[in-house]
Every structure is written in structure tokens, then in C-alpha cells.
Amino acid sequence: HHGSGALAALHADGPHAGLPVTRSDARVLIFNDWEERKRSEPWLRLDMSDKAIFRRYPHLR
């Protein structure tokens, strides 16, 4: 199991509170979210491209 239990660094406060600090933090969040959702949506594709990251977390651009 590759990303399970990996912890992402999140901004503690300010405008980005609760959001990932780096792209690799964002990838951890996206992976964990996908892993949760694919139980009920097995067709869901995992997209951890930069484009997917920016779409979801525009502050990382």
C-alpha cells in the first residue's frame, strides 16, 4: 500500500489554513481522498498530475 498513512504538511493558519504546503503534500491528500472514494466509486481514476493539483489547490501554482 503505497501512500496510506502518509501525512501531508498543511498550512496551520492564514489564508491557506488546512491546505497542503507543497505539491508532494497535495499528492498525499489527493491519493488518500482517491483511496477513500474508490470504495464507493471503483471506476474513479487517480490523477496526481500537476494540472490536477493546480485545479484542486490553485494556491500551489
Rank of each mutant, 00 (worst) to 15 (best):
His1Gly: 11
His1Ser: 10
His1Thr: 11
His1Ile: 15
His2Gly: 15
His2Ser: 11
His2Met: 11
His2Arg: 12
His2Tyr: 12
His2Gln: 10
His2Phe: 15
Gly3Ser: 10
Gly3Thr: 12
Gly3Leu: 14
Gly3Ile: 13
Gly3Val: 12
Gly3Pro: 11
Gly3Trp: 12
Gly3Tyr: 11
Gly3Ala: 11
Ser4Phe: 15
Ser4Gly: 11
Ser4Asn: 10
Ser4Glu: 11
Ser4Thr: 14
Ser4Asp: 13
Ser4Met: 12
Gly5Pro: 14
Gly5Cys: 14
Gly5Ile: 13
Gly5Trp: 13
Gly5Glu: 10
Gly5Phe: 09
Ala6Trp: 13
Ala6Gln: 11
Ala6Leu: 15
Ala6Thr: 15
Leu7Ile: 13
Leu7Ala: 10
Leu7Met: 11
Leu7Asn: 09
Ala8Asp: 04
Ala8Val: 13
Ala8Phe: 05
Ala8Cys: 09
Ala8Met: 05
Ala8Leu: 07
Ala8Tyr: 08
Ala9Arg: 14
Ala9Val: 13
Ala9Leu: 11
Ala9Cys: 15
Ala9Met: 13
Leu10His: 05
Leu10Arg: 06
Leu10Val: 10
Leu10Ile: 09
His11Arg: 04
His11Leu: 06
His11Ser: 03
His11Cys: 08
His11Lys: 03
His11Glu: 05
His11Met: 03
Ala12Ile: 11
Ala12Gln: 11
Ala12Ser: 11
Ala12Asp: 08
Asp13Thr: 11
Asp13Lys: 15
Asp13Leu: 06
Asp13Tyr: 09
Asp13Val: 08
Asp13Gln: 09
Asp13Gly: 08
Asp13Ser: 12
Asp13Asn: 08
Asp13His: 08
Gly14Phe: 03
Gly14Val: 15
Gly14Trp: 04
Pro15Ala: 12
Pro15Thr: 05
Pro15Leu: 15
Pro15Val: 07
Pro15Phe: 04
His16Ile: 10
His16Arg: 05
His16Trp: 14
His16Asn: 09
Ala17Ile: 11
Ala17Lys: 14
Ala17Gly: 04
Ala17His: 06
Gly18Trp: 04
Gly18Phe: 04
Leu19Tyr: 04
Leu19Arg: 15
Leu19Gln: 06
Pro20Asp: 00
Pro20Met: 01
Pro20Tyr: 00
Pro20Glu: 10
Pro20Ala: 00
Pro20His: 01
Pro20Trp: 00
Pro20Phe: 15
Val21Glu: 07
Val21Met: 15
Val21Phe: 03
Val21Ile: 13
Val21Thr: 05
Thr22Arg: 06
Thr22Tyr: 03
Thr22Lys: 05
Thr22His: 06
Thr22Ala: 06
Thr22Cys: 07
Arg23Glu: 06
Arg23Cys: 14
Arg23Lys: 15
Arg23Ile: 15
Arg23Val: 14
Arg23Tyr: 15
Arg23Asp: 06
Arg23Thr: 11
Arg23Phe: 10
Arg23Trp: 08
Ser24Val: 08
Ser24Phe: 12
Ser24Pro: 04
Ser24Gln: 13
Asp25Phe: 02
Asp25Asn: 02
Asp25Pro: 00
Asp25Trp: 03
Asp25Gln: 05
Asp25Gly: 05
Asp25Met: 04
Ala26Pro: 00
Ala26Gly: 02
Ala26Ser: 08
Ala26Phe: 01
Arg27Phe: 03
Arg27Cys: 12
Arg27Thr: 03
Arg27Trp: 04
Arg27Tyr: 05
Arg27Asp: 01
Val28Tyr: 06
Val28Gly: 05
Val28Lys: 12
Val28Asp: 03
Val28Glu: 04
Val28Trp: 08
Val28His: 07
Val28Ile: 15
Leu29Gly: 01
Leu29Ile: 09
Leu29Trp: 02
Leu29Cys: 07
Leu29Tyr: 02
Leu29Pro: 00
Leu29Val: 09
Leu29Phe: 03
Ile30Phe: 13
Ile30Val: 05
Ile30Thr: 01
Ile30Trp: 01
Phe31Glu: 04
Phe31Trp: 08
Phe31Met: 07
Phe31Leu: 07
Asn32His: 11
Asn32Glu: 12
Asn32Gln: 13
Asn32Cys: 12
Asn32Val: 08
Asp33Val: 04
Asp33Glu: 14
Asp33Arg: 06
Asp33Trp: 06
Asp33Asn: 06
Trp34Lys: 00
Trp34Met: 01
Trp34Tyr: 09
Trp34Ser: 01
Glu35Asn: 13
Glu35Lys: 14
Glu35Pro: 00
Glu35His: 13
Glu35Gln: 14
Glu35Cys: 15
Glu35Gly: 05
Glu35Arg: 13
Glu36Val: 10
Glu36Gln: 12
Glu36Arg: 11
Glu36Ala: 11
Arg37Ala: 06
Arg37Asp: 15
Arg37Trp: 02
Arg37Tyr: 15
Arg37Gly: 05
Arg37Thr: 04
Arg37Ser: 05
Lys38Asn: 07
Lys38Ser: 09
Lys38Cys: 13
Arg39Tyr: 09
Arg39Ser: 11
Arg39Ile: 12
Arg39Val: 11
Arg39Met: 10
Arg39Glu: 11
Arg39Asp: 11
Ser40Gly: 08
Ser40Asp: 13
Ser40Cys: 14
Ser40Leu: 13
Ser40Arg: 11
Ser40His: 10
Glu41Arg: 05
Glu41Ile: 06
Glu41Ser: 04
Glu41Trp: 06
Glu41Ala: 05
Pro42Thr: 04
Pro42Lys: 06
Pro42Ser: 05
Pro42Ala: 05
Pro42Glu: 04
Pro42His: 09
Trp43Ile: 04
Trp43Glu: 12
Trp43Leu: 10
Trp43Ala: 12
Trp43Tyr: 09
Trp43Thr: 10
Trp43Ser: 10
Trp43Asn: 14
Trp43Gly: 13
Trp43Val: 05
Leu44Cys: 06
Leu44Gly: 03
Leu44Val: 07
Leu44Ile: 07
Leu44Ala: 08
Arg45Asn: 08
Arg45His: 09
Arg45Gln: 13
Arg45Glu: 14
Arg45Phe: 06
Arg45Thr: 12
Arg45Tyr: 07
Leu46Thr: 00
Leu46Pro: 03
Leu46His: 02
Leu46Gln: 01
Leu46Tyr: 15
Leu46Glu: 01
Leu46Val: 07
Leu46Lys: 01
Leu46Trp: 01
Asp47Pro: 00
Asp47Cys: 06
Asp47Val: 03
Asp47Gln: 02
Asp47Tyr: 03
Asp47Thr: 02
Met48Arg: 02
Met48Lys: 01
Met48His: 12
Met48Val: 09
Ser49Gly: 04
Ser49Thr: 07
Ser49Lys: 01
Ser49His: 02
Asp50Glu: 08
Asp50Gln: 05
Asp50Tyr: 06
Asp50Val: 08
Asp50Ile: 10
Asp50Ala: 06
Asp50Met: 07
Asp50Lys: 06
Asp50His: 07
Lys51Ile: 11
Lys51Met: 09
Lys51Glu: 15
Lys51Ala: 13
Lys51Asp: 14
Lys51Trp: 09
Lys51Ser: 11
Lys51Thr: 11
Ala52Cys: 08
Ala52Pro: 02
Ala52Ile: 06
Ala52Leu: 05
Ile53Ala: 00
Ile53His: 02
Ile53Glu: 01
Ile53Lys: 15
Ile53Ser: 00
Phe54Gly: 06
Arg55Asp: 14
Arg56Phe: 05
Arg56Ile: 10
Arg56Gln: 09
Arg56Pro: 02
Arg56Gly: 02
Tyr57Glu: 00
Tyr57Asp: 00
Tyr57Thr: 00
Tyr57Asn: 00
Pro58Tyr: 15
Pro58Phe: 00
Pro58Thr: 02
Pro58Arg: 01
Pro58Gly: 01
Pro58Ala: 02
Pro58Gln: 02
Pro58Asp: 01
His59Trp: 02
His59Gly: 01
His59Cys: 00
His59Asp: 00
His59Ser: 02
His59Glu: 01
His59Val: 00
His59Gln: 01
Leu60Met: 02
Leu60Ala: 00
Leu60Arg: 00
Leu60His: 00
Leu60Ile: 02
Arg61Asn: 08
Arg61Thr: 07
Arg61Gly: 08
Arg61Gln: 10
Arg61Ala: 11
Arg61Ser: 08
Arg61Phe: 09
Arg61Lys: 11
